[in-house]
Structures are given as structure tokens and as C-alpha cells.
């Protein structure tokens, strides 16, 4: 790949990150001049307590000094302390990170594969029953709000049929290890994962179908057919590789939303991930945790965006070699 292309993209990503870092700081300062007043409004605090809280948040300092401190601490990996639990924000985030990566990562990967395959087949059999039913299915699932679908599935499969637990990461007080722990967690994850997968499929299906339809009328498919290739070979070797290009960006981009993408669904299924952590922090409100989460969410989108650009550059020779 062209080194200048890579350098340009990486520089752009670093610049965006720096902007987000600054923006994130000022966003939470705009809310109110004094977070201590704002957070503890209406509660009786002694002047000493206020002073100590202001000391802890560095509120008394001039804004510029606060900003320098914030940047320095963030770069050192220190995201401050949670107001609610007094634990370091980074610990709160790390605890919730893996459940979210598991759940949303699985759902994203599944929906990507299923949606893309559905889109390929629908477009290749355009106008048939296969096409119209796949398209209808995608439109319906795509337009359903995820919190609504989560509640419907919860009511049907967890409460009425009792096939799945109603929520949580594993059985309460579970001491299982190894395979049985994994199976227990998978059992808990099934419903939220199905909810998210259904919600995500439509986007991939609809985009892949449209992209395939653009490709189907290309002259090089006619040439591939004229060469004597089978229909499936024409599709697999010539149509799909070209039609996939626009999807690569979308997919890589969507991996950036893995961390932040399931706030409602995690809250409904009591899944102890970043979404629920966000939900809890909003209830507080626990601004240091929110600030840390926002920074993480933005960073993951920016990094995913960078990867999308680089991947697209690698896959499309027209981008890679120009």
C-alpha cells in the first residue's frame, strides 16, 4: 500500500482523537461551572465537604489548568474516580468491557455474515420469492426498535417459554468453571445476542443487495459468463468481490459501535456490559464515568474508521495503487 496514504489516514485519526479528547473535557464543563454544585444540588453539605469535593475534582483551579491536568492524566491512563463508587473509572470500564465485547461482537459478526449472504442471494435471484421475502424480513427487523424487540423476546422466550434466563451474565452465585461456565454464560447471552443480531442484519442485507444489483449489470459479468463460467462461479469470483467493497467500510465502521451499541438491550437484559454501565452512570449522574465512557466510545469509532480506510485501500487495487 502507498505509504503516504497510510500516513495521511493515521495522522487524520490522531488529529480527530486529539479533538475528541479536548471536546470531551469541555462538553462536561459546559453543563455547569461547578460539577460539585450540579451533582449534589439540594443536599446538605458542610463547607468542608464542599471544599474537599472541589479539591478532588480540581474545580477551584482555572479552566486552563484543569484542562492540562485532564490531558496529562488521560494520557497516563487515569480517567479519574467514579462519584458513585469512588473506584477508578478505568476499573469500572474494564469490568464491563468483556461482557460487551462478547455480546455485541458476536451479534455484529453474526449479522454481518447472515445479512451479507441474504443480500447476495436476494440480488442474484432478483424479483423472486427468495428476494422479496428476504427483503421484507430485513426491512421489518431493521425498523423495529431494539429495546422493543428485546422486551418482546424476553416476554416470549424467557418469561413464557422459560427457554432462556431473563437476564444477567451467569446464574446467580455460580461457581462453575471451564466448559460449564462457558455454557452457562452462552445460555444467558443467547437472547440479547439474538435481539441485536436481528436488529443489525437488515442494514447489511439491504446494502449488500443494492451493491450486488449495481454489480449485476456490469459488463465484466457478461464477459465472465461468455467465458463459460458457471453461474455460481460468476457470482463468487466476479460479482461478490466487487459488491463487497462498499460493505467493508460499513462493517469495519460498525465494529467501532460494538462498545457503545447496546445500551438499551444491555439494560433490559441486565447484561453487565458497557451499555449498562452507561445506563447506570446516566442515572447517577456519574460524570467522571460518563466522561471516560464517551472517550472510549469515540476512540473505538475513530480507530474502526481508520481500519475501514486501510482495509478498503488494501482490498481495492484502484485505491491501493493510485
Amino acid at each position: 500500500m502507498n505509504p503516504r496514504f497510510v500516513v495521511a489516514k493515521v495522522t487524520g485519526a490522531i488529529g480527530t482523537l486529539a479533538f475528541v479528547l479536548a471536546f470531551n473535557f469541555f462538553l462536561f464543563r459546559v453543563v455547569d461551572d461547578n460539577p460539585v454544585d450540579n451533582l449534589f444540588r439540594g443536599r446538605n453539605l458542610s463547607p468542608t465537604q464542599i471544599a474537599s469535593l472541589e479539591e478532588r475534582f480540581g474545580v477551584g483551579d482555572p479552566l486552563a489548568l484543569q484542562f492540562v491536568k485532564y490531558v496529562r492524566q488521560t494520557l497516563q491512563g487515569d480517567l479519574g474516580l467514579s462519584i458513585k463508587s469512588s473506584r477508578p473509572v478505568s476499573d469500572v470500564i474494564m469490568d464491563s468491557l468483556w461482557p460487551t465485547v462478547w455480546l455485541v461482537g458476536t451479534a455484529t459478526a453474526l449479522s454481518m455474515v447472515i445479512g451479507t449472504l441474504l443480500g447476495i442471494h436476494a440480488a442474484w435471484k432478483r424479483g423472486t420469492v427468495t428476494d422479496s421475502s428476504a427483503t421484507a424480513f430485513s426491512m421489518i427487523t431493521y425498523s423495529m426498535p431494539d429495546f422493543w424487540m428485546a422486551m418482546v423476546l424476553l416476554a416470549a422466550f424467557a418469561i413464557n417459554l422459560r427457554w432462556f434466563p431473563t437476564g444477567g451474565f451467569e446464574d446467580a452465585g455460580s461457581t462453575a468453571t471451564g466448559l460449564s461456565a462457558f455454557l452457562d454464560q452462552a445460555h444467558h447471552m443467547a437472547l440479547p445476542a439474538i435481539t441485536l443480531t436481528l436488529g443489525y442484519i437488515g442494514e447489511y442485507m439491504i446494502l449488500m443487495r443494492a451493491s450486488m444489483l449495481d454489480t449485476v449489470s456490469e459488463d465484466y459479468l457478461q464477459l465472465a459468463r461468455a467465458k463459460g463460467l458457471r453461474d455460481t462461479e460468476v457470482r463468487r469470483r466476479h460479482a461478490v468481490p466487487n459488491a463487497l467493497l462498499p460493505l467493508v467500510s460499513l462493517s469495519a465502521l460498525n465494529f467501532g459501535y460494538v462498545l457503545s451499541g447496546a445500551i438499551a438491550v444491555e439494560a433490559i437484559y441486565s447484561w453487565p456490559g458497557l451499555g449498562r454501565a452507561t445506563f447506570n452512570a446516566l442515572e447517577g449522574p456519574d460524570f467522571p464515568v460518563l466522561q471516560g465512557l464517551f472517550l472510549l466510545f469515540s476512540a473505538s469509532v475513530i480507530v474502526a474508521n481508520l481500519l475501514a480506510d486501510l482495509l478498503n485501500g488494501y482490498l481495492d487495487p484502484r485505491v491501493r495503487l493510485s
Binding site: 456490469e218 459488463d219 465484466y220 457478461q222 464477459l223 465472465a224 461468455a226 466476479h238 468481490p241 466487487n242 467493497l245 482490498l315 481495492d316 487495487p317 484502484r318
Partner: peptide
């Protein structure tokens, strides 16, 4: 084929 531009698979 005619399309010198479009008859070859670009990737």
C-alpha cells in the same frame, strides 16, 4: 467486447 473500460473485472 466493446467496453475497454468496463469489460474487465477491476479487482
Amino acid at each position: 467486447f466493446q467496453g475497454a473500460l468496463h469489460s474487465l473485472n477491476p479487482v
